[in-house]
Structure formats: C-alpha cells, structure tokens
Amino acid sequence: MVRTAPHDHSPADAPPLYRRVAVRLLGELRDGTFPPGGRLPGERRLAEHFGVSRETVRQALEVLRRDGLLATDRRGSHVALPGPAPQSPASLVFPVGARAAEPRTGDLATLAWEAPSREHADALGLAPGRPTLVHRYTSATADGSGRRTAVTSFSAVALAEVEELARYRGRADGSASAQLLRAYDWMRGAGLTLHHRDTITRLAYTPSVRVVRRVHDQYARPLEITDLLLDARQDALVYEFTLPAAG
C-alpha cells in the first residue's frame, strides 16, 4: 500500500499529493520541458522543484513508471512518452572561444581548488573565500601572438550535479594538465540544459576583447562563469548557445 510522507498529507477530498505531483510532472513531460528520451533530474532536484519531500517525488515517479511513461535504468529515469528523441547538437569544446581552430603547441590548461575572484564568487553565489574548482587555459602561437586566456570558476551546483567534474577536486593542485574538453557534454549528460550568456567588451586602446560567459541550467542555477581575453585583430567572434540536456 502506497503511503505519503507525514508532512505531505492532503485534505480528505483531494487526490493524494504524490498523484498531484505526478500530474504536474506529466504536464512537463508533455510540454517538452523534458523531451522524449530525455533524462529526468534526480529526486532531490525534483523535490525542490515541486516543493515536496523526496518520498512524495519517489511515489509520483512510480505512478508514471506503472503507466509506462517513464523508464528507469542505472543512470536514472528517462521520459518514455512517444515522440522524436532530442537531436544531439554538435559538442562544444570547453572553454568555448578560447581555443583556436587548430591546436597550438603553446596550449596549457590547469585546475586548482581555490577561492575564485570576488566577481566569480558573487556570480556563482559562493561565500567570500569559499574554494571551488577553477580552470585556467592559455593558448598562443610560437611567437606569442594571438594569445587567448580563459579563467573559469565552477559553482557548487555544477560540482554536486556533474560527477565527472567533482572527481577533479582531489587532484586540482594548480599544476597538472587538465583540459576538460568535454565539460559541457558532462553537464548535459547529468540532465542539465545549458543556457549561455556572453557579454563581449572591447578593451580600450588595445586590440583585445573581453568575453564574460555565464552559464546556468533550466532552474536558473549558476553552473560556471568564464573570463576570456583574446587578441581579436584577425578573429571573428560568433557565439550562440542553448544546449538541451542529453537523453
């Protein structure tokens, strides 16, 4: 017999809370919030989204599974509604815009576990002095021209949700090479939809351009912020983003 969590009781004349959550979740499946074949967020995130307990979410998911609307495997629950599976967009190589079209011998990438800059901490909602994963990337030609640098700070949300990123915490000593080429693929694989917002500013009296990139997920939670500086005398800057979560 299915029972709701004690704090989730409903009035006697209303459907149980878990069934109402199941109806709301089904509506989001049908409106494409979670596309056919797409992976659902974890129970904890769904509980926060619907404002209920994890037990209530668990019961709601079971209702949809029994109706054949969800399928579950070791990677989590996936939408089983009929319809075309989401197309996989071309992978974006991290950090976007910092890498030249052709690999350069001067490319260098490192990771550190440290307190980010105040600007990055504020953007990510981190308390001053709280450490996080900070990625630094430098690219330059042999003669030092065309230099590009990028500093990325990841949020607590990104480290909690993306297992591949979290694994780096113990070995982020600031010296070992760490390219993180597939960082955005990892985020999508964790069920996150990526919204990128780039602010591009030309620096006065120089040929350089500063790009500040902020990435958040479908719940408006910050995932990362990147500061990118590049010599723009010859390169065109083209940025357009929204990557759906991977199915």
Rank of each mutant, 00 (worst) to 15 (best):
L61G: 05
R75H: 14
L124R: 06
R210K: 05
A127M: 08
A100K: 02
R65T: 11
A176K: 10
A183I: 03
D8C: 07
F50P: 08
P131Q: 00
A166Q: 08
V157H: 09
R167H: 14
T193M: 04
A98M: 03
A140C: 09
A127K: 12
A176M: 01
G83A: 09
R44W: 14
A204N: 11
S145A: 11
Q234R: 15
L192I: 03
L40N: 07
R118W: 04
V238F: 10
P95M: 04
L25I: 08
Y239T: 10
E55R: 14
H120G: 00
E55L: 11
D227C: 06
M1P: 12
A115G: 07
P82T: 04
V211L: 03
Y168E: 14
V151L: 06
T242K: 06
D13N: 14
R104H: 11
G42H: 10
G83F: 09
Y18W: 15
A172G: 00
R104W: 04
M1G: 14
R197Y: 07
V151K: 05
L180V: 05
V2A: 10
G51E: 00
V211E: 01
V238H: 10
H49T: 13
R147W: 10
G83T: 08
F154N: 01
R197T: 13
V215D: 04
D185C: 04
V79Q: 12
E102P: 01
R24D: 15
E114T: 13
T199P: 05
Q218M: 05
P11R: 12
F94P: 02
V157I: 14
V23P: 07
H120R: 05
T33P: 06
L229S: 05
A190H: 02
A204V: 12
P11A: 12
R118Y: 00
Y18L: 00
L228A: 01
V212P: 00
G37K: 11
V52A: 01
A150H: 03
T72C: 02
D173Q: 07
A123P: 04
R74I: 07
V21G: 04
E240D: 13
P15G: 06
T138F: 06
T72Y: 02
P11K: 07
L26N: 06
L46T: 08
A158P: 07
R221W: 09
S139H: 08
D122T: 15
L81H: 06
L111N: 01
L159I: 11
A12T: 15
T149M: 00
R19L: 15
A245S: 13
V212T: 15
A109Y: 03
A220E: 12
A140K: 11
V23T: 14
H195I: 09
L29Y: 01
H135W: 06
H7W: 14
L230F: 13
R54Y: 00
T105Y: 12
R104D: 07
L229R: 05
H196C: 02
H7A: 13
L70R: 01
H78P: 00
G247Q: 12
A115F: 06
F241N: 06
E161M: 09
